[in-house]
Simulated scan of single mutants.
Amino acid sequence: MSKAENSSKMKVEVWSDIMCPFCYIGKRHYESALAKFNNASHIDIVWKSYQLDPTIPEDVEKRMTTPEYLSTRKGMPLQQVEAMQQQVTLMAAKAGLEYHLDDAVVYNSFKAHRVIQLAKTKGWGDKAEELFFHAHFTLNKDLGDTDTLVEVGKEVGLSAEEVHEALTNENYAYEVKQDIQEAQQIGVRGVPFFVFNRKYAISGAQPVEAFVETLEKSYAEWQKDNPTGGLEITDGNVCTPDGDCQ
C-alpha cells in the first residue's frame, strides 16, 4: 500500500486526466464539498491515471493548441470550438479557477501520469494533481516535455533524479496502465470519475451538493463496517510501557 493510502480512512478514488478541463473543476467541487463535511479528516483521496487520447504523438515539432486539436478531432469549425471553450472557462471561474484554454497545448499525458504515480508513493498524489492541473490550464505548460516535467515535479517536491526515474522505470508505466485497465473494468466512460468506498460513483464535475450527499451516505456506511475508523485522540500527559512519564 502506498503512503497515499490509509486503511483507517474511507477511500475516494478519482480517475482523471490532467488535460481534462472538467477534472480540475470536479476537483474543486469535491474539495468544496469536503470542506462542508464533518468527517473530512477520515477521508483519503487516491488519484488514478486515465488518458482521454493515448494516440497523441509524444514527439512532434510543434504542439497543437487545444482549440486546433478539438477542431481537428471533432471536425468542428474553430470558432465553434472557441465558443464552447469560453463556456468551460466561465464554469471554471465559478469554481475559482483561471483557465487559458486558447493557449493550452496538447501533448500525450502518459509521461506526466508516470510522474504523478511516483508522487503518490510519497503521499503527494493530490498535490501533484493540483500543480499539474494548474501548470496545464493556467500556465499553459507543455507537460509532454521532460524538462517541463522536471520543473513542475520540483514544485511537487520531487528531485530531478526522481522525475527521470519515473520516466525510465517501467514500474510507473505499469501503474498507469493498471489504473486505465481498472477504469475499463468498472465501466468508466469519461472523467472525472469519483468512486466512494467502492460502492458509489459520481461521473463528471457534478455540483458541490452532489458530492456532499455522496460523502455523507458512503461514509455513514463505511463507518458501520469500520467502527474504530473514526477514533480521534487528544494527547495529554501519559506514562508509556518503557517507564517514561511526561
Rank of each mutant, 00 (worst) to 15 (best):
N237V: 14
S109Q: 10
A173R: 07
Q178H: 11
T146C: 05
L34F: 08
E68R: 03
E162S: 01
E165I: 01
D244L: 15
A173I: 08
S2K: 03
E31M: 02
R28F: 00
L78D: 10
E151C: 02
K74H: 09
P21D: 12
D235L: 15
Q206A: 13
E68H: 02
Q51D: 07
C245V: 03
S16E: 02
K111C: 14
N38V: 10
Y107S: 10
D103Q: 15
Q223Y: 12
Y69S: 01
K36G: 01
P241K: 07
A119P: 07
K9N: 12
G204C: 02
P57A: 07
K224S: 11
I43K: 04
P241N: 02
H164V: 09
K122D: 11
V191T: 12
D244S: 13
K224E: 15
E162F: 02
K3I: 14
T55K: 10
R198H: 15
G144K: 01
E129G: 09
V188Q: 00
K141Q: 13
T121G: 02
V208R: 05
D53Y: 04
N169A: 09
L52W: 11
V156G: 01
N169R: 02
S41L: 07
D102I: 05
A128W: 08
Q206S: 03
A205E: 03
A4T: 11
F133H: 11
D102G: 10
D44A: 13
Q117V: 01
